[in-house]
Simulated scan of single mutants.
Amino acid sequence: MALSLTSPGIFSANSGVLPAYKDVLPYNTYVQWYENVHIPDWMGAKTGAITSAWRYQSLDPDSELPFLVTYRYPDISANSAPEFMNVTLNHPSLPEGGPINKFIKINVMSGPHVQTWRSGSTGDTRGPLLVTESIEPTGMTPDQFDEWYRDVYIYEVSLMEGWRRTSRFSNGMGSPKWFALHEFEESAVFEANTTGKISGLLGKSDETKEVEKAAKMVEIALWKLVRVYGDGAAAWGRPGEDHIL
């Protein structure tokens, strides 16, 4: 399955303050810098490169990386523009004035949009709850993984209470190969949701359990939407591409 790097895509940054620096950089200070300084700086680095961003907070109280922001690029190739290298990581609100990367751990993923499926009753705004899912499958060709995802897994996910939309992406930055954003209504119920943790893939069929068992890596996390920047109703793919279930 060929994917074009000129297609719309995502840049996802998941971060948190390192334990050794939590006294000098309280999480609330970090949030204020990130929401009010860094996200606007990143979105404004190159005109037209980013149209939207969504900021999420982990629902897992023990999360090492509780801060998540996802950016939509109309053309994912713009992510490599030199203007982004010039975004400053220093600011007076930070300890020692920065740079911020001294005090935090951050995991980033970026790549083209593969496909979005959504409920027929879903509006254009993002769901208030988000499940992020990263997977590095083994024992499957890319076409076999794609067939399982399109023909089996997405229908299992779509039957869950409160499901609104699922968008899948290819990660061009190494492992994991694939990641997805599953959006849900606030009424959604997840296994062990009282702890903010989800133990595995959302589907329960034998085929899905085999994919999970064989996978080199599966990571699932639960989030709430906190803040929207730019066009919050922008589709991840091109207009009219979403598949209605």
Rank of each mutant, 00 (worst) to 15 (best):
S205C: 03
P8N: 00
A235M: 04
E191C: 08
D23L: 15
V157T: 09
L222D: 04
G120K: 02
L94M: 14
G120S: 07
D41P: 02
N193L: 06
E183K: 03
K197M: 08
P95W: 10
P128D: 10
G16P: 00
W117A: 03
W117Y: 09
P19E: 00
K102I: 14
K204H: 14
V189Q: 09
S52R: 04
K105H: 10
G139A: 03
S77C: 13
E96Q: 15
D146Q: 15
H182P: 08
G139T: 09
G139F: 12
I50Y: 00
H182Y: 11
L222I: 05
W54E: 01
G172T: 12
R165Y: 10
G120N: 03
D231A: 06
L129C: 06
K177F: 11
S110G: 11
S167C: 14
M160V: 07
V152S: 05
T88S: 15
L245T: 08
I135L: 12
D62Y: 05
G237C: 04
N14G: 01
W236Y: 00
I100V: 09
T132M: 08
S134F: 15
K22Q: 11
T194Q: 05
I39R: 01
E207H: 13
E133M: 14
P66D: 06
L202M: 14
H243A: 04
K204I: 11
V31E: 12
E96N: 15
A180N: 00
L129K: 15
T51K: 08
